[in-house]
């Protein structure tokens, strides 16, 4: 049956449901069915990382998953990173402080990758920071201010 099937997920802490064809990827479900357009599409073949979300707390590429595969699981998108309305996570705030974006298109994926990194590693080195986003491509920033933002968010001196 290739017709739409019911898919239920928890997204940013809220149970959500959608009816979507099995071939619908997780990123398309989030964007087109659930109206969460913060997660972006850049390549649809698993290289650029713009579609990164947390799946049961771990960063994954939402373009490399069919939504049906993650039925019943918990997804966190960029819209769910702030602790509450009107506030920002330490990472989000650091991104603002350090000018860690320009067009903003890769930013949600970066924040997702780093949310996982700092949860596992309170004081990542520059090499570890770069490795955490080895699969998140950015064409605007040259990564320098992004690295500085994560150093800043983890209480370490920025590079330059």
């Amino acid at each position: 049956m290739t017709q739409p099937i019911p898919i239920a997920l928890t997204v940013n802490g809220t149970p959500r449901q959608a009816l979507a064809e099995p071939r619908t990827t997780l990123v398309d479900l989030l964007r087109e069915h659930l109206g969460l357009t913060g997660t972006h599409v850049g390549c649809e073949h698993g290289v650029c990382g713009a579609c990164s979300v947390l799946l049961d707390g771990e960063p994954v590429r939402a373009c490399c998953l069919f939504a049906a595969q993650v039925d019943g699981m918990a997804v966190t998108t960029v819209e769910g990173l702030a602790p509450e309305r009107g506030a920002l996570s330490a990472l989000q705030d650091a991104f603002l402080e350090c000018h860690a974006m320009q067009c903003g298109y890769c930013t949600p994926g970066m924040l997702i990758a780093f949310t996982d990194l700092v949860a596992r590693n309170e004081r990542p080195s520059e090499a570890e920071i770069r490795e955490a986003i080895g699969g998140n491509l950015c064409r605007c920033t040259g990564y320098q201010q992004i690295v500085d933002a994560v150093l800043h968010a983890t209480g370490q001196a920025a590079h330059g």
Binding site: R31, L36, T37, G38, T39, H40, V41, T77, V78, E79, L81, A82, L88, Q92, F95, L96, E97, H99, M101, G104, Y105, T107, P108, L111
Partner: peptide, 18 residues
Amino acid sequence: RAVEHRRFVTGQGRYAAD
């Protein structure tokens, strides 16, 4: 702090595909 960035870090940017 860049004005635009406030919407980008919260996923509230408004791109053409949105």
